[in-house]
């Protein structure tokens, strides 16, 4: 795969097949943490970091450990363990060296373990037979797509807070409807083709 192909793949992963708006990977943190733009940005960066790192590690685990020994069927268990360990490591690292970020992300960091965006991107790179470089780029792009979605949506939600929807729609439902409208905007990218 040439450099251009990798760029196109990344473009596709960020916009056309956006993890949130076209694949629905990682909707829980997307709907949970997107109430303030600053938090959303922090969460997005943390997720991008974890996805890129775990894509690299799980690719190595799969290629050098699981595949040669015919342990293909163990990949879900192996990957989730790798991700859990990585998240734990990042949490300790942040607490020690970047306490400000640690305090603002606080309880959300452990949630990254159970963020399906991370697990699904590690599984997708195996399914698509990506090599190491492609895997890391794909993970990074997937994380960027997630960050883009969550930050844009946090801005929308900041506006929603001052709006007055009908009582039944207050809170979660109006958030979902707004997400739907944003998804509609993102679906316009599906018309983009590379000639």
């Amino acid at each position: 795969m040439s450099f251009t192909d990798i760029l196109l793949m990344m473009f596709g992963a960020i916009l056309i097949e956006n993890f949130i708006f076209s694949k629905f990977y990682g909707c829980c943190p997307f709907l949970g943490v997107s109430d303030k733009p600053a938090n959303a940005l922090g969460m997005g960066m943390a997720v991008t970091f974890v996805i890129s790192l775990s894509c690299a590690v799980t690719w190595a685990v799969y290629t050098f450990l699981l595949e040669p020994f015919g342990l293909d069927y163990l990949r879900t268990i192996a990957f989730i363990l790798v991700i859990a360990a990585l998240v734990q490591f990042i949490e300790m690292f942040l607490r020690k060296f970047v306490p400000a970020l640690y305090n603002s992300l606080g309880i959300y960091l452990p949630l990254i373990t159970t963020n399906c965006a991370v697990l699904s991107s590690t599984l997708l790179i195996i399914e698509n037979n990506y090599n190491f470089i492609e895997s890391v780029c794909f993970g990074f792009a997937a994380g960027l797509g997630f960050t883009l979605a969550i930050v844009v949506f946090a801005g929308v939600r900041a506006r929603l807070e001052t709006a007055h929807p009908p009582r039944a729609f207050r809170g979660f439902p109006i958030t979902l409807v707004a997400a739907g409208l944003l998804a509609m905007a993102f679906s316009a990218f599906s018309g983009v083709s590379f000639g």
């Binding site: 708006f21 729609f169 439902p173 409807v177 739907g180 409208l181 509609m184 679906s187």
Partner: peptide, 15 residues
């Protein structure tokens, strides 16, 4: 489509 999923769920939860 994806957009419909969000909106449908929003309307159900509103109900």
């Amino acid at each position: 489509q994806p957009a419909g999923a969000f909106i449908t769920l929003g309307i159900i939860i509103a109900a």
